[in-house]
Amino acid sequence: MNAARRRADAAENRARIIGTARAVIARSGEVKLNAIAKEAGVGQGTLYRHFPTREALLAEVYAYDVDELVAAAPALLTEYEPLAALRLWFDRVADYARVKRGVFAAVEAGVQRDLAANSHGPIGDALTALLVAGKADGTIRPDVDARDVILLIGYLSRLDEAEWDARARHLLRLVVDGLRRR
């Protein structure tokens, strides 16, 4: 096997591990590395080559979700009116928050603080882009900023898993309604 193919295989394995870990966290919040390796179809050695610790894997899952969430804002603005883009982005926020909650439950407090500190800036920037577009077209109230919205949606981390499906997206829609210019 040539070096380029080995690198491609390694990248595929890494992506499959991250995707599987994300699905496991969203599904159960329980992070057992041997179960993730098995479900991803890789050996434990492969998992540990990519992620030497559980925290390293969780940090990568979290970073991947932050990147996806941030990239979604400008993409949605190219396809939808600002208010619709914000609503669709909030749907992604609900998915992100579910995984974030699972990641934070599984890592130490110090790692949790580092993860949160590294995500607030990019997420705030993405949210600002959505709000600015909505203010420019007159659909979003002029008196709100990203920090207001981040504080409002912080409640997602307090929802019980049993309430998640029934309440997360509904509550985000209430926030969107409150942001709408009357």
Results as ranks from 00 to 15, higher is better:
Arg27Asn: 12
Val93Met: 15
Ala26His: 06
Glu55Met: 04
Ala71Cys: 07
Arg27Lys: 14
Tyr64Lys: 13
Leu58Phe: 03
Glu55His: 05
Ile140Val: 15
Pro142Val: 02
Val31His: 03
Asp145Glu: 13
Leu57Ala: 09
Val107Ile: 14
Val42Glu: 05
Glu68Ile: 00
Glu60Thr: 15
Tyr80Phe: 13
Val149Cys: 07
Leu131Tyr: 03
Pro52Asp: 11
Val31Asn: 01
Pro52Thr: 08
Gly154Gln: 10
Ala133Thr: 07
Ile140Pro: 01
Thr139Ser: 15
Gly29Thr: 07
Ala162Val: 15
Asp137Asn: 11
Glu30Arg: 15
Val132Asp: 12
Ala72Thr: 02
Phe51Asn: 06
Gly45Glu: 09
Asp165Asn: 12
Ile140Cys: 01
Glu108Gln: 10
Arg27Val: 05
Phe90Pro: 01
Val132Met: 02
Asn34Pro: 08
Ala85Gln: 06
Ala56Thr: 11
Ala162Ile: 13
Arg27Leu: 14
Gln112Leu: 01
Ala162Tyr: 05
Val93Arg: 10
Val24Asn: 03
Ala105Lys: 10
Lys32Ala: 08
Ile153Asn: 05
Val107Gln: 05
Val42Arg: 05
Ala84Met: 13
Asp145His: 10
Arg49Phe: 13
Arg147Ser: 13
Phe104Ala: 11
Leu47Thr: 04
Leu58Met: 14
Ala84Tyr: 00
Asp91Met: 11
His50Lys: 10
Asn118Lys: 15
Val132Pro: 00
Ala85Ile: 09
Ala109His: 13
Val103Leu: 08
Ile36Tyr: 02
